[in-house]
Design a protein around this nucleic acid. Structure first.
Lengths: 206, 206
DNA sequence: GTCTATAAATCGATAGAC
DNA sequence: GTCTATCGATTTATAGAC
């Protein structure tokens, strides 16, 4: 838990542990308490970093949020890459994505979807256009779209991809609101069957 | 805009306008800015009520939120009742519900679903079990479940109802994140076709 | 480079004047 | 019953000591 792998104390990089710990703590607290109810002091405390020191690594709270979004994006990207290398067929890949998303139903039922609730809260924060929060969702949608296209559903690939993610995000919202993990588990099974039904360009339902 | 229909100045009811205006202002601001970024001063200002006076009508900010939830619940209830009296078949009723939900796609794309974002934010506020926020979603789910049951889908009625609302809420979240009203419009059309496909106990897809 | 003390601003809530 | 002035607690952010 302490800063074990310390890079040279007087080097130009101070990344061995503190910045990473701050981001990890921010990811957790932003998910559990939400953006507005998480203070920088909370994040520093969980990361075991002195309170006011956060401003050495991040200029503002928005910068911390941006770092959290970037970390999520990286995690999503590597997860999708891992699925792609582990599974060959588009259907297996899409099912693996659903499995991954609905994996921690208890946590989602308690705190909501980490990505969905984050996007929802970021929207309320900025008057300016965006914050790259949409990128998180686009990463998943673009990837799913490619799978549906490979499945032979070229013309509807994008709509199917949006529907897939929407089905999950909506189920996550309801599971969270009602504190019921089963809602997410049932949704996961249903989406799996739906993926199975998607094949030839004209036999599946829209 | 001023308090025109004033009930007796010294009566035991002070409900002619101010409390209602405060709730209406709170509904609007909680939707647009979110709970945590809406101050009681903002609400009072929009309602054209003196700043500190909010505490005469509501004991705490949580009480204001509870009043907003109650107002939403009433609005949802009367909307469902209106649909029920206007349409006879379950399918027409379910489609009318979708029409109603996806009605203001521009506003939803800008600020999210008024109900969904509210539930999401309330979850982050309370450590205690709940805040009757789930009631909002349950109102709609229970009603939709009754329609599906009348449609002859007794055994799966509840799951179908949850799926229906989840599909909308997920689409609303994505539409909001990407600031794209078309996502909600397309989802509305897709759900309509899905409702059409739901009929006999064994012909529809799960 | 690292951390403490504190400034500056904001908000929920209260006391009490009218 | 209606409204104003203000308190007290937080919280972001900064200045500057070590």
């Amino acid at each position: 838990m302490a800063d074990s792998p310390r890079r040279k104390t007087t080097g130009l990089q101070q990344r061995p542990g503190k910045r990473e710990r701050l981001v990890a703590a921010a990811i957790q607290l932003l998910h559990q308490r939400g953006i507005e109810r998480t203070t920088l002091a909370d994040i520093a405390h969980l990361a075991e970093v002195p309170a006011g020191n956060v401003y050495y690594y991040f200029k503002t709270k928005d910068d911390v949020i941006a770092a959290v979004v970037a970390a999520h994006a990286e995690q999503v990207g590597s997860t999708l890459a891992a699925i792609e290398s582990r599974f060959r067929s588009p259907k297996a890949r899409l099912k693996a994505l659903v499995q991954e998303l609905a994996g921690q139903s208890e946590i989602v039922a308690r705190y909501g979807c980490p990505l969905g609730s984050l996007c929802s809260e970021i929207d309320k924060r900025l008057d300016a256009p965006d914050f790259a929060a949409a990128t998180l969702m686009l990463l998943i949608i673009d990837w799913a779209e490619a799978q549906f296209r490979e499945l032979g559903r070229g013309t509807q690939a994008r709509e199917l991809a949006v529907d897939l993610l929407a089905a999950y995000e909506g189920s996550a919202l309801l599971a969270n609101t009602m504190r019921d993990p089963d809602i997410l588990s049932e949704a996961s099974r249903r989406i799996d069957r739906w993926i199975d039904a998607q094949s030839a360009p004209r036999t599946g339902n829209a």
